[in-house]
Design a protein around this nucleic acid. Structure first.
Length: 394
RNA sequence: GCGUCGAUGGUAGAGUGGUCAAUUACAUCAGACUGUAAAUCUGACGCCUUCGGGCUACGCAGGUUCAAAUCCUGCUCGGCGCA
């Protein structure tokens, strides 16, 4: 069971800094949650994750259920122990895969849409996930086998995976889904939240795990607010804010929700992790963020710097012997040059992924830490301004 | 020396009379990526362009043909075989 305490709030905003105590350690918030989908943060060892100062790791129920199977992870003592991560842990419920393997499958639609895609409701083919009121039927992307995920089975799997904090089973909707669908889906996600709660209470009689309900509602204020009211009234230990946004409404839509959610419970913004979005989300009252972007982008050669992103594979870096980001104290920057990392990428060496991931994770983890400090020091807005002045996203 | 096979865009390698500026892969140059189907995916990749098209190209030089990377002749270079 977690204990959440708020240390400081910024007057006139929803932002706050605090602390979450779990049985495996403390998380100082706002905090960035490192994603280790398959009980591994891609390209990194547990030791490297610790060195980066990561506070908490989030794994994925769908992926671990399929491989190696929840029973194996349970026998290992939970996914944290399995991967040699002894700090706080979370698992996602599999609800995101209802989107990524369903509505988004085979399309260019991502959970954060540009304005144009929002109206794109073109049908897609070959989807691996089908959503009904009962649950989500997945066709395994590994071997094609069918698997029904329900709120109950997700709770059972997450119980076996053994994280400190788990999420209710939800449907992550597409940003291109119309109001009618968002509304219908929201009712379903609400029913699933209640079913998750019931099954969780049956399983976890000693209250070892904390369950977070997930707020959906797409980009619609009335739906978001309704979800916050409905789920906020249920005895969850914290809340996830999920689903689809347009980049511009991350701050606003999240604010609608956090104005209503109980103040004394942690709020986790699911799947958001670009610097600008993090500032907006903190200001709108979020405490936790997980995102695959730092590590995926790293593997693809896109690196964060205080002056914005760079693509280290660009020709101009082959003989650039400066640091990736001047003044960066990460392992990669203190030992290697841009030219070296560029060489590793061009030579297809796997160390490229490792060193790039170390840098990007360091960048984002430090950023969120500094945001936390700035809240405690009453310098949030100054820090935000200072950061955004130099960090230019094209 | 004789015979034989071959010479294609940065590389490898398709094509064997028109639908070829030339399949494909790699390389190269860019771009995308936000609860990880992702060490992935997308685009560009002869020169010029008012984006309609124009021009120069498949070892070199001729030739046949309405039309040649594709057929013929000679040459140059290379592989293999025989001397």
């Amino acid at each position: 069971m977690l204990k959440f305490t708020i240390e400081k709030k910024i007057e006139g905003t929803l932002a706050r800094a605090g602390e979450i105590q779990t049985k495996n350690g403390v998380i100082q918030t706002p905090a960035f949650v490192t994603v280790g989908t398959k009980a591994t943060v891609k390209a990194l060892t547990a030791e490297q994750i610790r060195s980066l100062g990561a506070q908490v790791v989030l794994a994925n129920t769908y992926h671990l259920y399929l491989q190696p199977g929840a029973d194996i992870v349970e026998k290992a003592g939970g996914f944290g122990k399995f991967m040699d991560w002894h700090g706080p842990t979370m698992t996602d419920s599999g609800g995101f895969q209802a989107f990524s393997l369903g509505a988004a499958f085979g399309t260019s639609v991502s959970k954060v849409a540009t304005g144009d895609e929002v109206s794109d409701i073109s049908a897609t083919k070959g989807q691996l996930a089908k959503v009904t009121d009962e649950g989500v039927t997945f066709k395994s992307h590994l071997d094609g086998s069918s698997h029904l995920f329900t709120p109950e089975s997700s709770m059972e799997a997450q119980w076996k995976l053994g994280a400190d904090m788990i999420f209710a089973f939800d449907e992550c909707t597409s940003p291109s889904a119309p109001y009618e669908y968002q509304q219908k889906s929201l009712v379903r996600t609400y029913e699933w939240a209640k079913r998750s709660l019931v099954r969780h209470e049956e399983l976890d009689t000693e209250k070892q795990q904390s369950l977070f309900g997930v707020i959906q509602g797409g980009r619609f204020q009335d739906l978001r607010e309704q979800a916050a009211r409905d789920l906020g009234a249920l005895p969850f230990d914290g809340y996830g804010i999920g689903g689809s946004f347009t980049k511009d409404d991350i701050g606003t839509a999240v604010g609608w929700v956090n104005t209503i959610l109980p103040e004394d419970k942690p709020r986790h913004l699911l799947g958001i992790g670009e610097p600008i979005d993090l500032f907006n989300a903190v200001e709108a009252g979020c405490d936790l963020f997980d995102c695959i972007a730092p590590t995926r982008m790293a593997r693809h050669g896109t690196l964060h710097t205080t002056h914005g992103r760079i693509n280290i594979k660009n020709a101009k870096f082959v003989d650039d012997f400066t640091q990736i980001d001047e003044g960066c104290t990460c392992y990669t920057c203190t030992h290697h040059t841009r030219a070296y990392i560029a060489h590793l990428f061009r030579a297809d060496e796997i160390a490229a992924a490792t060193l790039a991931s170390i840098h990007n994770l360091h960048f984002i983890l430090r950023l969120v830490e500094k945001i936390r400090e700035s809240i405690l020091n009453d310098t949030f807005f100054e820090y935000k301004k200072e950061f955004l002045e130099t960090y230019i996203k094209k």
